[in-house]
Structures are given as structure tokens and as C-alpha cells.
């Protein structure tokens, strides 16, 4: 019984979600085959044995220089048909959310999407996924053959579980496809995406005006490049921050190890995007703000006094 773990790379380097996908795959028992679509060798792929991959397969084609939805889907679906895998695991990243249903449909099944937990159950699989804006958890038995699932990023902490990890490269013959990525407009260098940051400091309407976000940016910098600045919808709609930074139901779903909500009231749609964070800190002047109900630690008061002090303390820690 082999599980296929679908990795993700950009510009020839493996992305962090790949370790999570392998970690989750090997929880199911049985062998783990990791697969990535690329133009050639992928940096980091040789390290996956450490996380429990028995085999790492690189499917190569010139079309894979950028994400090629149709070509990747075809290559993966063909591989899946040959391999007879019981389960295929994707990451629910922007790319994984696009790719998994394409592959699934070609295999005649749907995707169990955005899982926060999964376990083998007899011949099948039982998975857990947040629904209704995180206000409930749905437990689903997946009888599909194969079971195609995608994982909420940052939930499955990579565990080292060394295996020999053989490597294989296969040139695949697939068409470039009708849908092609012409270019990637990259965010300014040095900005970390909220979906990938281990620490997120999010600001809301309590910041009062766009320029004040520099208070949060300074705090983020104090964490030495591990932190990203997020936003509530209120400030995105007001044009203070980019939609890419929005956390919540109509923004990104995040699960960092530390989420600091500053001047955010904690509306249900905001909570939908961050309630699976490991540790939540709230800074708000209203002691009755709903955000304190989900926060592990709260500080009541004026953010303009509290945040600079916090920045100072964090700087001391990071020397």
C-alpha cells in the first residue's frame, strides 16, 4: 500500500509544504512515494528521505518551468493510474488547490480538501476538515479509490523519520496545455507571504490609518525575517493593505505558530482564517472584544503603547 505525496517546487527549489505532505503521507503507514514536476533536479528533493519518503520521483518536462496546470495534472494522473496508489496527498496551497481537483477528476473522484487531520481506517481513510468558517469540524470517511486529499498548510508539523530514500527521474511526454502561466509578478523581495510565515502580526481598523502599519512592520522585523504582516478585511477593503495580506474567510487561511492580532475585533469571518494557529495573542483596547475569546494571551490597552514596547522586548531576545 503506497501513498503518493505530491511535492511543490518553484524556480527549482522545493517548497516547505512538501515536507508536510510527506510527513502526513507516512502517517498512513505503508510506503511513501514523493513526486514533483520540474524541468530538472529540484533543490531539496534529496533531503526528503529524512522525512520518510521511500522514493522521490522527479517528473521532468520543459513545460514545468512554471506551474503548468494541465501538463502537471496529466503527468500526475498518468503516474497515479500506473502506480495504483491508495492515497494521493497534496498541500492546500494556491497551487495545490488548483492542481488537486484536476488530477482527482481525471481519476474519477473528488478531493477531500484542506484537512487538519487524517488517519487510515480499515481499507479507507478518515479525514477531518474545518467547515462553516471553522465553526464546525467535518469528519469524512473517504472510500474513493484512490483517496485524493489536500492538507491545510502549517498544520502537519514535519517530523524527521529517516529512510533510505531512493531517487528516480522520469522524462514525461505531456502537452504544455491550454492554460499557461506567462509570468509571476513577485511581491517585493524580502516580504514573507502570510500563508507561509511562522509568525503573523495582523492589524485591523484599530491601527487608525495606513501609515500606522509601520508599527507592525517594525515588530515583524524584530522577529528577524520570520514574521509577516497580515490584515483584517476592514483595512483591506479600505485600501490600506493588499488583499494578499488579508486573513479570513475571503482571504487566506493561516496556521502559524504565533498569531498576534492587533486592533482586530475578532469577527467570525476573521477567526475563520486564523483559529487553527498554534498560539494566539490579542492586543485590543476593548476588554470585551471577541478576539479575546480565542486568544491564548491577551493584553488590554492602547496598541500604540503596547506594540512598540513588545518590539523592544523582541529585539532584545533576537539580539
Amino acid at each position: 500500500m503506497t501513498t503518493l505525496a505530491v511535492l511543490e517546487q518553484r524556480d527549482g527549489t522545493l517548497r516547505k509544504i512538501s515536507h508536510e505532505v510527506v510527513t502526513a503521507a507516512q502517517r498512513l503507514g505503508g510506503a511513501v512515494e514523493a513526486v514533483v514536476c520540474a524541468t530538472g533536479p529540484v533543490q531539496g528533493a534529496d533531503q526528503l528521505g529524512k522525512f520518510g519518503a521511500d522514493k522521490v520521483v522527479t517528473l521532468t518536462n520543459p513545460a514545468f518551468a512554471r506551474y503548468a496546470p494541465e501538463a502537471c495534472a496529466q503527468a500526475l494522473a498518468e503516474r497515479a493510474k500506473q502506480g495504483g496508489y491508495r492515497t494521493i496527498v497534496f498541500g492546500a496551497t494556491a497551487t495545490g488547490k488548483d492542481l488537486a481537483p484536476r488530477v482527482a477528476a481525471q481519476l474519477g473522484v473528488g478531493v477531500a480538501e484542506d484537512l487538519t487531520d487524517l488517519a487510515a481506517d480499515g481499507g479507507g481513510l478518515v479525514v477531518t476538515r474545518p467547515v462553516y468558517a471553522g465553526k464546525a469540524l467535518l469528519k469524512v470517511k473517504v472510500a474513493a479509490q484512490p483517496a485524493v486529499v489536500s492538507l491545510r498548510p502549517n498544520v502537519f508539523t514535519p517530523v524527521e523519520r529517516p529512510k533510505a530514500g531512493t531517487a528516480e527521474t522520469v522524462a514525461v511526454n505531456v502537452a504544455a496545455g491550454r492554460v499557461t502561466v506567462r509570468e509571476i509578478k513577485a511581491a517585493p523581495a524580502g516580504t514573507l507571504d502570510v500563508a507561509e510565515a511562522q509568525i503573523i502580526i495582523s492589524g485591523g481598523r484599530g491601527l487608525k490609518e495606513p501609515a500606522n502599519f509601520k508599527v507592525l512592520e517594525e515588530l515583524a522585523r524584530a522577529f528577524g525575517g520570520q514574521a509577516a504582516v497580515g490584515a483584517s478585511r476592514a483595512v483591506v477593503d479600505a485600501g490600506w493593505r493588499a488583499h494578499a495580506d488579508q486573513v479570513g474567510q475571503t482571504g487566506k487561511t493561516v496556521s502559524p505558530s504565533l498569531y498576534i492580532a492587533v486592533g482586530i475585533s475578532g469577527a467570525i469571518q476573521h477567526l475563520a482564517g486564523m483559529r487553527t494557529s498554534k498560539v494566539i495573542v490579542a492586543i485590543n483596547k476593548d476588554k470585551d472584544a471577541p478576539i479575546f475569546k480565542v486568544a491564548d494571551y491577551g493584553v488590554v490597552g492602547d496598541l500604540f503603547e503596547i506594540v512598540p514596547k513588545l518590539t523592544e522586548e523582541i529585539r532584545k531576545l533576537h539580539g
Binding site: L137, A143, A144, V294, D296
Partner: peptide
């Protein structure tokens, strides 16, 4: 289809949080 709902449950309660204090 091949997906069967086994249960719908409330999300796990987050561990009771605490107000650390007021102000800087």
C-alpha cells in the same frame, strides 16, 4: 459518491486563554 460524512462536531475549544494584563 465516495465521501461519507461520519460526524459534524464543534471545533475543539481552545485552551482557556488569559488576559496577561493592561497596557505596556
Amino acid at each position: 459518491g465516495a465521501l461519507e460524512v461520519a460526524a459534524l462536531t464543534p471545533p475543539p475549544e481552545r485552551k482557556e486563554g488569559k488576559i496577561v494584563g493592561e497596557g505596556a
